[in-house]
């Protein structure tokens, strides 16, 4: 049971929901940038939501599926095709052994997620299969995927649902059911993406102009953005007076402002601590949106309260619960 990497794509790595509990030792969280899409992909094939998946960025890989597989693709649209035929996202897809799954042109978003039934049979390091690129641990040999890699797959009991898809497949190389997870969460192309933020307790340290401009002016996601952080350019944000900062913990979505005034939004591979002043914190539910915004795009920050952010968070979790139940229902039955 394995998948062979024919071409690796731009930055393709194994990620799960991240490595928690070790930040106090300086070990970063890592994990999928768009955790929402990662969870959906797993649920669609009947995995635990936090199983390891393949995360691909801007330009996807080409993969040889060496076994009959139930897989699901979510997140950004990188034009996935099996043996040259477009394959839909947001659904479980049964694929015949020997097929080639190739990702092509980026149509929307920035990152795509591929989950396979049973997950990947790779060892957990500190409780996670996520690739920690800089320390060279986790994932597949602690690095991004390369040509020729053979990814061993985990075992999972076969679903009756998948067997019914086998019957439906006939002579074609893949089959899928007539239901899917809505793509309402997938980013629609836009001139400017809205990112909701909660001002940080250090917000008041910024100059009145900077505080105003932070919400009024758009910022561009620069090409120096990566899994560690989104580096923005736009108006230069300044403190009212210079400040000696002492390093303290940072979080996913923390917007910190180095002395050059260009904000950085900290993402999955952020360090555990930072010494720059923090202007705001991206609402948890908008992190996945942000993960699908590609360099060159413009974003605009919108202020929300802590209470609103918490409600949005709870509503998103409730949504995932619902999706989980309906998918479980579908997978427990037969597709025909």
């Amino acid at each position: 049971m394995s998948i062979k990497v024919l071409t690796p794509g731009l930055l393709t790595s194994i990620q799960d929901l991240g490595r928690y509990g070790y930040q106090k030792y300086g070990v970063i969280v890592s994990g999928g940038m768009d955790a929402y899409s990662l969870r959906l992909a797993n649920l669609l094939v009947g995995n635990e939501e936090g199983e390891a998946v393949i995360e691909m960025t801007l330009m996807g890989p080409s993969l040889l599926l060496e076994e009959d597989l139930l897989l699901a693709i979510t997140g950004g649209d990188l034009s996935p095709a099996i043996n040259g035929q477009p394959v839909p996202q947001g659904r479980p897809v049964l694929v015949r052994k020997g097929s080639v799954l190739k990702f092509g042109a980026l149509k929307s978003g920035c990152r795509s997620y591929l989950a396979v039934r049973g997950g990947f049979d790779i060892p957990e390091v500190m409780g996670s299969k996520s690739t920690y690129l800089r320390a060279g641990i986790g994932g597949y040999q602690g690095r991004a995927l390369l040509q020729g890699d053979i990814l061993p797959l985990g075992l999972a009991c076969p679903l009756p649902f998948a067997e019914s898809l086998v019957r439906a497949m006939g002579s074609s190389s893949f089959a899928f059911p007539p239901w899917y997870v809505g793509r309402s969460y997938v980013l629609q192309k836009s001139q400017e993406y809205r990112v909701r933020v909660i001002p940080n307790s250090q917000f008041s340290l910024f100059s009145p102009d900077s505080r105003k401009q932070f919400f009024q002016e758009p910022f561009q996601v620069t090409t120096q953005s990566d899994r560690m952080g989104y580096r923005l350019s736009g108006v230069s944000l300044q403190l009212t007076e210079p400040l000696e900062m002492i390093s303290e913990a940072v979080a996913l979505g923390t917007i910190q402002v180095p002395p050059d005034g260009n904000p950085i939004i900290l993402m999955a591979d952020r360090q555990t601590v930072g010494g720059y002043p923090k202007i705001a914190q991206v609402a948890g539910v908008d992190i996945s949106t942000l993960a699908q915004i590609k360099p060159g795009s413009k974003i605009r920050f919108e202020e929300i309260s802590l209470g609103e952010a918490e409600e949005l968070y709870a509503a998103r979790e409730a949504d995932i619960q619902r999706i989980n139940i309906t998918i479980q229902l579908q997978l427990a039955g037969t597709a025909t």
Binding site: I82, Q85, V87, S164, L165, A168, M169, G170, S171, S172, S173, F174, A175, F176, P177, P178, A335, T336
Partner: peptide
């Protein structure tokens, strides 16, 4: 009510 299943490459003759 019958449910359908889509098999790839049979878009013209979906089951």
């Amino acid at each position: 009510v019958p449910k359908a299943v889509w098999a790839a490459g049979e878009s013209e003759q979906r089951l």
